[in-house]
């Protein structure tokens, strides 16, 4: 009998599994770090919460962190967003949609709310952005 691949026994889509297991950029910036804008979103249905922190330098994201409480997909969404955001300017950040997140992470229909959670967290960052985010 064939054994299921050892490292992903629950058969999550590969991008989700990889990000969930490695969770790059997990954590947060020390309070008061210059240029940091924090956005948070939650999905009441799934009782998940995502906090995204982007540190801006000269109008672009220089570094990013995330924290998440929720299923592996919502954690992977946070990790992907934090990695993707680095180097982007505000206009590029504003262009991200939940659909793109779903495509990048191969998020299945029943987890679509996790992609919305990611989009909401990014929107929350953009909403709190000062006119000139550069320090």
């Amino acid at each position: 009998m064939p054994l299921v691949e050892d490292s992903n026994p629950f058969a999550y889509p590969a991008p989700i599994w990889t990000l969930f297991r490695s969770t790059p950029r997990a954590g947060g910036f020390a309070p008061g770090t210059p240029g940091v804008v924090t956005g948070e979103a939650q999905s009441n249905a799934a009782r998940s919460r995502l906090r995204l922190q982007l540190r801006f330098e000269r109008g672009r994201v220089a570094d990013a962190r995330f924290r998440a409480y929720g299923c592996p997909t919502s954690i992977a969404v946070g990790a992907w967003l934090a990695g993707w955001a680095v180097g982007k300017d505000v206009r590029e950040l504003a262009g991200l949609s939940a659909a793109r997140l779903r495509k990048e992470l191969e998020i299945p229909d029943q987890r679509a709310h996790c992609a919305l959670l990611g989009e909401d967290a990014l929107r929350a960052v953009l909403d709190r952005l000062p006119e000139d985010p550069s320090p």
Binding site: D6, S7, R21, S22, T23, A26, G27, G28, F29, A30, T33, R65, R67
Partner: peptide, 16 residues
Amino acid sequence: MSAVIAPATSRAARTI
């Protein structure tokens, strides 16, 4: 800055 370091993920074939 407080970074969270994920515990090393063991890729050992062992399953309990």
